[in-house]
């Protein structure tokens, strides 16, 4: 399994989770876990996903997600899980 973290941040609006999840499905990315919260007006969501079945290359996927983010006025980052593990776990 190749785990990747997709983080989504920005002003809360209707349909963020739906559209990000739809994009994941489109690229055959399996969502393993989702955490989200809304602080005041700020929407924050972190998805742990499995990208081993990804149907395009990683760079394209990452760029498509970022483009989706800017279209919705959100910040979306796709990053390998290990960077968080190594930084915050001993």
């Amino acid at each position: 399994m190749k785990k990747t973290v997709i983080s989504v941040m920005g002003k809360d609006t209707v349909g963020i989770t739906a559209r990000v999840s739809a994009a994941c499905a489109e690229y055959n990315v399996n969502i393993i876990d989702i955490t989200q919260s809304v602080l005041q007006d700020m929407f924050v969501m972190v998805m742990l996903t499995d990208i081993s079945g990804l149907n395009c290359n990683f760079k394209d996927f990452s760029e498509k997600m970022q483009a989706l983010g800017s279209a919705m006025n959100l910040e979306i980052h796709v990053m390998h899980e290990d960077i968080f593990n190594s930084m915050h776990r001993i």
Binding site: V5, S7, M9, D33, T35, S37, V44, V46, L48, E75, H77, M79, E81, I83, F84, N85, M87, H88
Partner: peptide, 16 residues
Amino acid sequence: MLNLNDILETINMIRQ
């Protein structure tokens, strides 16, 4: 699952 604050901290370090 990773801690939400940890993830935000890492992203903030890189972006900001």
